[in-house]
């Protein structure tokens, strides 16, 4: 097997060309090689009638500017018509299951805080106010209103609050009214989760039992 720095593969398909761009090398190297291939080594093939081009970036994450710089090189060849660009949907930071957004303020009566992903909220959610997330909800403050975690059906989602005294809790499709016995609990930070489709409450330090995917601190 020959190992040579070939980061740009050009393939011919029925109705055009596919540019397979390596997703591991540096972007600069890639651009350089692409430019070289278009202007020198493959010049002959790439002149002539209009050809449809599909660009495949693999798993490389590019910003809009970077994407443009790649396409600009292709556009320099008048006969290359870019038909599609295949790249990962979004940047990893926007991966709703992994990231945690921090917001602060007060969600007052009649107000709705809607968030895609996991949310850390610094402040209170008042009675009549709603906080709704597709992921987990962590409230550093009092939850007196309604909280809905796992909006789109994620039953693994949890709701945690420094002071958990909600009017209603929802996780995925499960709705729970706080039972009366909640009122006389010791005031430690708690979280709500679903266990066998039923809403349960536990101390925040036990959250790892429910969510083994969290990064655990184990000490030395």
């Amino acid at each position: 097997m020959t190992v040579k720095p070939n980061h740009v593969t050009i393939k011919g398909i029925k109705d055009g060309l596919v540019f397979l761009l390596d997703d591991k090398c540096e972007l600069g190297t890639l651009l350089e090689e692409l430019r070289y291939k278009l202007e020198h080594s493959h010049q002959n093939i790439l002149t002539g009638p209009i050809i449809h081009v599909d660009v495949k970036l693999g798993t490389r994450i590019v910003s809009d500017d970077q994407k443009e710089s790649i396409l600009d090189i292709l556009r320099q060849k008048g006969n290359l018509l870019i038909r599609s660009v295949e790249m990962p949907d979004s940047e990893p930071a926007a991966d709703p299951l992994k990231s945690l957004t921090t917001m602060c303020g007060i969600v007052r009566s009649g107000q709705v805080l809607h968030h895609e992903g996991n949310l850390m909220f610094l402040g209170d959610v008042n009675p009549g106010g709603t906080i709704a997330c597709t992921g987990d909800i962590f409230i550093l403050g009092s939850l007196r209103g309604m909280a809905h975690a796992g909006l789109e059906g994620n039953e693994e989602a949890v709701i945690a609050a420094s002071y958990l005294a909600p009017t209603q809790l929802r996780i995925a499709e499960v709705i729970s009214r706080p039972p009366d016995e909640w009122e006389n609990r010791e005031t430690s930070m708690e979280f709500a989760f679903l266990s066998d489709g039923k809403m349960q409450i536990d101390k925040i330090s036990n959250i790892l039992r429910m969510r083994p995917d969290f990064i655990a601190f184990k000490g030395v």
Binding site: I106, R108, S109, G110, Q111, N126, P127, G128, G129
Partner: peptide
């Protein structure tokens, strides 16, 4: 009263 406080909270939100 709870009802008055609830409405006051709504009003404060609108004012803010």
């Amino acid at each position: 009263e709870h009802a008055a406080v609830r409405d006051a909270d709504r009003i404060i939100g609108l004012l803010e």
